[in-house]
Design a protein around this nucleic acid. Sequence first.
DNA 1: GTCTATACTACGATAGAC
DNA 2: GTCTATCGTAGTATAGAC
Lengths: 197, 197
Amino acid sequence: MTLAEEHDIKQRILLAAKKLFALQGFDGTTIRQICEEASANVALVSYHFGGKENLFGALFENFFPNQKIASIDPSFHPVEGVRLVIREVTLYRHSEPQLISIIQQEIILNTPRIQKIREHVMPMWQMLRHWMEEGRRQGYFAFRSLDSAFMSVTGTLLFHRDQEYWMLLREDKKPDVETLAEDLTDFILYGLRYNGQ
Amino acid sequence: MTLAEEHDIKQRILLAAKKLFALQGFDGTTIRQICEEASANVALVSYHFGGKENLFGALFENFFPNQKIASIDPSFHPVEGVRLVIREVTLYRHSEPQLISIIQQEIILNTPRIQKIREHVMPMWQMLRHWMEEGRRQGYFAFRSLDSAFMSVTGTLLFHRDQEYWMLLREDKKPDVETLAEDLTDFILYGLRYNGQ
DNA sequence: GTCTATACTACGATAGAC
DNA sequence: GTCTATCGTAGTATAGAC
């Protein structure tokens, strides 16, 4: 009973924090707001997580697909590997838009909290980079600079916007996630000068 | 004398605000910090700009290439138009990285201040979108969805990262801006399936 | 484990002296 | 035009009652 209750309220706080950090940023969100959103008392963030910073870290232990990333096989065919990353990132963007928003914010602000993020995401970017390099070596891709191309791909994947900001310029209705993944795969593979085959 | 002084301190405040908003975000930056950075008194932000919000708006009146954007000719050849936007955005990213960082933050957080940004940047995005559409109509490009492709291009341009976050994964030394613009042009034009000619 | 009450700090903004 | 001093508010965090 006590345990279930605790889990429940901790979970509510985590969800509220994820939502509000995404919407308002870490600095723009107060513990009071989080606790109100979670129907919890102000003191419980300190009690359960030991402060706002630690609450942030807890989000990545709870909502990031750490296990999935760890289980990726680097010996994949390079082109298939790149396809896989594009697809998985796009699906994850779709299922956890709030965590993506938080990640984007922290990267751009280059906050101290970025260290926490690095621990979780770098293995996947390493893998992507490896496949891009290997793909070029084997003659599938023909980009000039690995660094530039890698930046372009991550920029396209991570900051692809589907938000209010652009609404004024959009005419199609929002595409389903599978179509979006295909469009992104096309754009990126052609961008890397993938030679059919 | 009085006028020169005023300009000077207003300018110092503007520069300090630009720097700190870029580094720490709008919410994460206090008027006190700005004034310390500018060697100005705390009261002068209210006096000269009428508060923190208005100071933010003033950044875009002062540091955004409003005139340059207004002077672009929409009757450009579509492919050349796309090339132009890629190049200009890349050069601007290089000359005003702080304002770019501020824009990125506001877009991602979807703050009320985004309205101010829209006023300044939308004309250029409209133009880019127009050229992409026209380029496809005339057979130069072959992307499936204009919306998806447009999002990919803006994502690549606006969020191309050249920052600490990725340092661990970069091996070349930082390329000069012209080389970067060329790489981006290649990636984007191939991504749009530009057919040589 | 949860809540109330409070300590302490820092924020934005401004009145008033100069 | 600039500065000092201060107001009112809101932040995080915690001690102590329940």
